[in-house]
Measured scan of single mutants.
Amino acid sequence: KYSDMIVAAIQAEKNRAGSSRQSIQKYIKSHYKVGENADSQIKLSIKRLVTTGVLKQTKGVGASGSFRLA
């Protein structure tokens, strides 16, 4: 599940300011076997996790910027 992968990526990075979408994508692609549409799936999952309150956006708008666990 992409949401689990995103949470794992943010936990692994341990950046106080949060993790960027690009760094999350890079982590997921190197640690998991994902399909061609992974980028758009990650983007959608990040937006969903922010609206449900699992992630907090520290910089930027939408799916860009930095995110950390709430």
Score class of each variant (00 low, 15 high):
Asn37Leu: 06
Ser45Asp: 06
Gly35Pro: 09
Ser23Gly: 05
Val50Asp: 02
Ser19Arg: 07
Ile46His: 00
Glu36Met: 09
Arg16Glu: 12
Arg16Gly: 12
Lys43Gln: 12
Lys43Cys: 13
Glu13Thr: 09
Leu44Gly: 06
Thr58Gly: 07
Arg16Phe: 09
Lys14His: 12
Arg68Ser: 11
Met5Ser: 00
Asp4His: 12
Ala12Ile: 03
Arg21His: 11
Arg16Asp: 10
Arg16Pro: 15
Ser64Trp: 09
Glu36Trp: 09
Val54Ile: 10
Ser64Gly: 13
Ala12Pro: 00
Tyr2Phe: 09
Arg48Val: 10
Leu55Met: 02
Lys29Asp: 03
Ala70His: 06
Gly35Thr: 05
Ala12Leu: 03
Val61His: 12
Tyr32Gln: 00
Lys43Ser: 14
Thr52Pro: 00
Gly65Thr: 14
Glu36Ala: 13
Gly35Ser: 08
Arg68Thr: 13
Arg21Ile: 15
Ala70Val: 09
Gly65Gln: 13
Ile24Gln: 00
Ala9Ile: 03
Lys59Glu: 07
Tyr32Thr: 04
Lys29Phe: 09
Lys29Ala: 06
Ser64Phe: 09
Thr52Ile: 14
Tyr32Trp: 06
Ile28Cys: 04
Gln22Pro: 04
Lys47Leu: 12
Leu69Lys: 03
Gly60Ala: 07
Asp39Phe: 06
Ser3Asp: 15
Ser66Met: 14
Lys14Arg: 10
Lys56Pro: 00
Ala17Arg: 12
Val34Trp: 03
Phe67Asn: 02
Ser23Leu: 04
Ser3His: 10
Lys33Met: 11
Asp4Arg: 12
Val54Gln: 04
Ile10Tyr: 00
Ala63Glu: 11
Val61Cys: 13
Asn37His: 08
Gly60Asn: 07
Val7Pro: 01
Ala63Arg: 12
Ile46Gln: 00
Ala70Ile: 08
Gln11Cys: 15
Ile28His: 00
Ile42Arg: 01
Leu55Glu: 00
Lys47Arg: 11
Lys47Asp: 12
Ala12Arg: 04
Met5Val: 02
Tyr27Met: 01
Ala17Val: 08
Met5Arg: 02
Glu36His: 11
Val54Asp: 15
Ile24Ser: 01
Lys29Asn: 05
Gln11His: 13
Leu49Gly: 01
Ser20His: 03
Phe67Gly: 02
Ala12Gln: 05
Ala38Met: 07
Ile28Tyr: 00
Gln25Ser: 13
Lys29Val: 07
Arg21Asn: 07
Ser40Tyr: 14
Leu49Arg: 01
Ile28Thr: 00
Val34Pro: 03
Ser3Ala: 13
Gly60His: 07
Glu36Leu: 11
Lys29Met: 09
Ala17Ser: 11
Asp4Trp: 14
Ala9Phe: 04
Ile46Asn: 00
Gln11Leu: 14
Lys1Met: 10
Arg48Glu: 11
Met5Gln: 02
Val54Phe: 06
Val34Asp: 02
Gly35Ile: 04
Thr52Phe: 08
Arg21Tyr: 15
Asp39Val: 08
Thr58Val: 13
Asn37Arg: 08
Ala17Asn: 13
Gly62Met: 05
Ala63Ile: 09
Glu13Lys: 07
Thr58Ile: 13
Lys1Cys: 15
Phe67Ile: 05
Arg68Gly: 05
Val34Ser: 03
Ser45Ile: 13
Ile24Ala: 01
Leu49Tyr: 00
Arg48Gly: 05
Glu13Gln: 10
Ala17Leu: 11
